[in-house]
Each structure stands twice: as structure tokens, then as C-alpha cells.
């Protein structure tokens, strides 16, 4: 087996590149990454090798941004630079895998994945193949995740997928409660952990995921389903713009 089969290329959201990169590193892959805007926004460990182009011998490529424009730009780069037989795994929480596949020359090699900070390290990853996805591509994707020790769940290709949508809506509800000053953030988290056995409180979870990512996902769901049900809590929107919570 060629050495290059052991290499994975990552680009996109730095925190996700870091989180998935570490998981791949643990599983014995060599990590190549291309920084988001030419320079590092976060210091990456030494075993992450920065590259400006993709060696033709890398077979698994991951695009991990939530922002639509950035994702398009990155995917067009990957599609052009990567070898013909490489498969593309792309985060499909905010843009469907089907739409992303329509941007590139060979849509059959793209599969959507659920990548959300704090969930990536868990045991399972959701896969959203499109109607174009090649069976051989799916087989290689499954083999790749088996090597990472991940279980897989194949879901329909929809904005928000399964866990990101449920989790972001829980967080949104907690922020509506906070916006309305019904309880303190500490008490909200405590109540959900002790009262319903949630693994983390929704507010601390939002902090760990990154408020900006939560809002980006909720905006995509709101745009897609176009229902009042998915409108974003005012406080959450403001915090995504850099505000701090100062309530009682």
C-alpha cells in the first residue's frame, strides 16, 4: 500500500481541522492542512503539516467550514487540486451535500458529514450521501471512518442533519429563556443536567461549540425551513456579534 494512502488533507474551520486532525493522527494518518486565509489563525501542533497545494496521491480530503462562501471557495480549490480518485468529505450541516456536489466537476465523489465542535470526538458521525454519490466512494468513506473507530449513521441530506439540529435548537431555547431573564445561565445548565440527565448544560455547550457556529447553523436551518419556529434568540444573535451576557 502506498504511503500516501495514510495521508489526509484538511481545510476549513480551524477548530474543526484541529479536532478531526487529532482524531486522524491518533489513528495513524499523516495530516496535511491548508490554513483558512493563508495564515494560521490558531497554532497547530507540529504533526499538522501546512501545505499550499494537495499532493496528487492524497485520497481523503475534508472540507470543514460552515460558512457557505468559504466552503464554496475551498471546495473549488480541492476539486481542482486533488487527484481524480480522491474522495471529498465535506461538512453538510449548513449547506446540503447535494448543493455542494453541484459546485464541483465530479459530484459523485462528495459525501456530506456532520462536523460540529464537541461532537466530532464522540463515537458516531452522520453521513449524508447525495443521489450522485458513487457506491465505491461510499465504501471508501466507510473504510476511512472504520479506521478512525467511528460508528456511522446514514441520514437524508438535509440542512442541520440530526444531532446538530436537535442540539442547536436546545441551545436556542435556553437562550430564549436567558433573553427573557427567567433564570441564570448557571441555573439553566444545572437544571438540565440534574433534571433530565443532559451530558452538558446548553449554555456551557454553546460556549464550547462557539456561539458563532451555533448561530451559523441556526441561520441555515431558519433559511431552509423558513418557519418562525427556527428564528434565533435575540441574545444568541447579539453574542455572535461579540456582545457579552450581562443579565441578572
Amino acid at each position: 500500500m502506498a504511503q500516501s494512502r495514510q495521508t489526509i488533507f484538511l481545510m476549513g474551520d480551524p477548530s474543526l481541522v484541529l479536532e478531526l486532525g487529532e482524531i486522524c493522527h491518533q489513528a495513524g494518518f499523516a495530516i496535511l492542512y491548508k490554513p483558512a486565509s493563508g495564515k494560521d489563525s490558531a497554532p497547530f501542533p507540529k504533526h499538522f503539516k501546512k501545505v499550499n497545494t494537495i499532493p496528487r496521491t492524497v485520497f481523503v480530503l475534508c472540507e470543514l467550514s460552515l460558512d457557505r462562501e468559504l466552503k464554496k471557495k475551498n471546495l473549488l480549490f480541492i476539486d481542482k487540486a486533488a487527484g481524480a480518485s480522491a474522495v471529498i468529505l465535506s461538512s453538510s450541516i449548513t449547506v446540503t451535500a447535494s448543493e455542494q456536489a453541484s459546485w464541483i466537476r465530479r459530484p459523485s465523489r462528495l459525501v456530506g458529514i456532520s462536523t460540529m465542535p464537541t461532537l466530532l470526538s464522540q463515537k458516531l458521525i452522520e453521513l449524508a450521501p447525495t443521489i450522485h454519490t458513487d457506491k465505491a466512494v461510499m465504501a471508501r468513506v466507510q473504510e476511512f471512518f472504520a479506521r478512525l473507530g467511528k460508528e456511522l449513521a446514514i441520514v437524508q441530506d438535509r440542512i442541520g442533519m440530526v444531532m446538530p439540529r436537535i442540539l442547536c435548537m436546545l441551545i436556542n431555547e435556553a437562550f430564549f429563556a436567558l433573553t427573557e431573564h427567567i433564570a441564570s445561565p448557571q441555573d439553566i445548565d444545572l437544571a438540565m443536567k440534574l433534571g433530565t440527565n443532559y451530558p452538558r448544560g446548553p449554555i456551557e455547550w454553546a460556549d464550547q461549540i462557539g456561539i458563532h457556529s451555533v448561530v451559523t447553523i441556526l441561520e441555515a436551518i431558519h433559511d431552509d425551513l423558513d418557519e418562525d419556529r427556527y428564528r434565533i434568540a435575540p441574545l444568541l444573535k447579539q453574542m455572535a456579534l461579540g456582545a457579552q451576557w450581562w443579565g441578572t
Binding site: Q122, E151, V155, V162
Partner: peptide
């Protein structure tokens, strides 16, 4: 599948 995802991906 939704239950499995919520348990194994969400950690619930």
C-alpha cells in the same frame, strides 16, 4: 437511527 445518533454522537 435518531436515538442511536443522539446517544452516540450527542452523548445523551
Amino acid at each position: 437511527e435518531i436515538d442511536r445518533i443522539v446517544r452516540l454522537e450527542g452523548g445523551f
